[in-house]
Amino acid sequence: MSLSRTIETPEISGALEPEPAPRKHVLDLDDFSREEITEVLESARGMKEVLGRDIKKVPALRGKVVVTLFYEASTRTRISFEEAGKVLSADVINMSASGSSAEKGESLLNTGLTIQAMGVDTIVIRHPHSGASHLLAKHLDRVSIINAGDGLHAHPTQALLDLYTVQDKLGDLGGLKVVIVGDVLHSRVARSDIWGFAKMGAKVVLSGPATLMPPDLMRSSGSIARSPFASLVEVDTDLDRAIEGADVVMALRLQQERQNAGFLPSIREYIRRWQVTDARLERARLGAMVMHPGPMNEGIEISNSIAHGGSSVIEDQVTNGVAVRMALLYQLTIGAGLES
């Protein structure tokens, strides 16, 4: 099936070929193959072309219903999904926990079953608990689930837009050095990005306070069982060393409450050791790009001049997020053959 059957848009791109994989849910990138990621990125390229038009509307998902179910505050992800759905002509219904039955104590599962019973096609869910999207995927059999961020676990659409953004600027991801800086322990973005960049052949280096790294990655002892990430990343708490020759530097949001919980002596010391600054970026490869999943604490994990400087691709990430989410909504709703 192709988008070229539309009247208003005789063709958008040939990039939707070959036939999308029969995927029903997007829960994390750990179960994506390199080929599948490549397909999504190619499909997103076609979608981005649509976004560049005067009339940003194609009827690809006309008659399909997407519900965004957000149990956590969000600006960019929720609006990005809503725009993606609307550009594709899906009916998008936004639901947030406040003002819904969740406030009356309805369980996530019952809310999911209720939404499914209304005949929707796709649920986009963000939830503060890891595995919330898996819970819906396990018990709902008639809808596709897209994970828009679950607890500390995963944020696969963010990772895909990050991959897209890097590929767009630097071409092939293979062999690139990607440095992820900050609170990896509590970061769903970092987890999904590790999967994504590693699957595409990039070298991933994590840097940040040892207290904010997953404990199994901080130990070299042979008797300690290591997570799958252990074989995909290197850890170097010294950012000045880690950043040497980097092609991509990604700063993670530092939640200020980490200081109260004892993970950090002070924000001041964090800034001194791990803020992405002009001086540090000098050590990276010439033309290295700086990313941030947002929302930023400017002046903490990233300096003001970097955040808005020439190396920053933070706004491109946001733009590309819409295209990537269009590609996923399209592939899941049409490609996975939910109609069959």
Partner: peptide, 10 residues
């Protein structure tokens, strides 16, 4: 605490 907790973000 361990590899599965790290993987699953628990």
């Amino acid at each position: 605490e361990g590899p599965v907790a790290t993987h699953l973000g628990l």
